[in-house]
């Protein structure tokens, strides 16, 4: 088992948002977590990534059998957990390539592997950029600064491609994207999908799932998973709306 979430209760500023969430993810799987606003989708992403303002009240999260919750956010990342942000953060003054090389080399260092110098890394980055159809001129620009919504999301997937995580949590990656940008981002994710990694798509809408087909769909409502099924569940949800599952228990 790659990721095991057991009876997770978590929240923010004393308010409980996740109320006993269970989830199991194996390598090679793509899971979609769907749910209405306020259901706890973002809280789950943030807790998995280790955001300091979210508190875990009780429950367990195991990543490759290790207790994920006791690791710092940077340790989680080096172990192979990646989160694509709903709102990627701008880092003025630091170029994309500087940032990505530092991050990549930290991972290499952690695994006792060879670091890349700027020239070697540049070649590596150029290859990876093809996955999201990104122009190398973006390498020199400050991280996400002045990027359009679509460019920011593409940049998140580029980071995923560079860091090759075992588990990628894509938090509302489809939000704010027009159809062309959505297609590029989704195609990028599909290229990165493999039997060696797993992807959790956190999304409000079904439309992303037209492009990235999940193996499992989980519907989150009021802090719990209330319905689970295959990819057809997403279509059913789209048709019937979230009211259909609200209040229902698995």
């Amino acid at each position: 088992m790659l990721l095991e979430v057991k009876d997770l209760h978590a929240g923010i500023e004393g308010k409980e948002i996740l109320k006993g969430l269970n989830l199991q993810v194996k390598k090679g799987e793509v899971h979609a977590i769907m749910g209405p606003n306020g259901s706890g989708k973002s809280t789950l992403s943030k807790v998995l990534a280790g955001h300091p303002t979210y508190e875990v009240i009780s429950g367990e999260v195991l990543f490759e059998g290790k207790n994920l919750l006791e690791l710092e956010p940077d340790e989680r990342a080096r172990e192979g957990v990646f989160m694509a942000f709903q709102y990627p953060v701008e880092v003025p003054g630091v170029s994309n390539s500087q940032f990505l090389r530092l991050a990549y080399n930290q991972k290499m260092l952690h695994h006792g592997l060879e670091e890349l110098d700027p020239l070697e890394f540049n070649d590596y980055l150029k290859e990876k950029a093809k996955i999201v159809d990104m122009d190398p001129q973006f390498f020199k620009r400050s991280v996400n600064e002045g990027f359009s919504g679509g460019e920011k999301k593409r940049n998140e997937i580029l980071q995923m491609a560079v860091l090759e995580p075992k588990l990628a949590v894509l938090d509302e990656t489809d939000s704010g994207l027009d159809i062309d940008a959505l297609r590029i981002v989704a195609e990028g994710v599909n290229k990165l999908r493999s039997s060696e990694n797993a992807i959790i798509l956190v999304t409000h809408y079904q439309r992303l799932l037209n492009y990235i087909q999940p193996d499992f769909v989980h519907v989150l409502a009021n802090g719990k998973i209330v319905k689970e099924g295959g990819k057809e569940l997403a279509l059913e949800l789209e048709e019937k709306g979230y009211d259909w599952v609200k209040g229902a228990a698995v």
Partner: peptide
């Protein structure tokens, strides 16, 4: 900025390195 720091941490940069990189970026502007 806390959110900038968290972003860099989630990419695997240790805290000291992340803070230094943000400081560098601030000056580089």
């Amino acid at each position: 900025e806390e959110e900038q720091l968290f972003y860099l941490l989630t990419r695997g940069l240790p805290e000291v390195l992340a803070k230094n990189l943000l400081t560098y970026g601030f000056a580089e502007e």
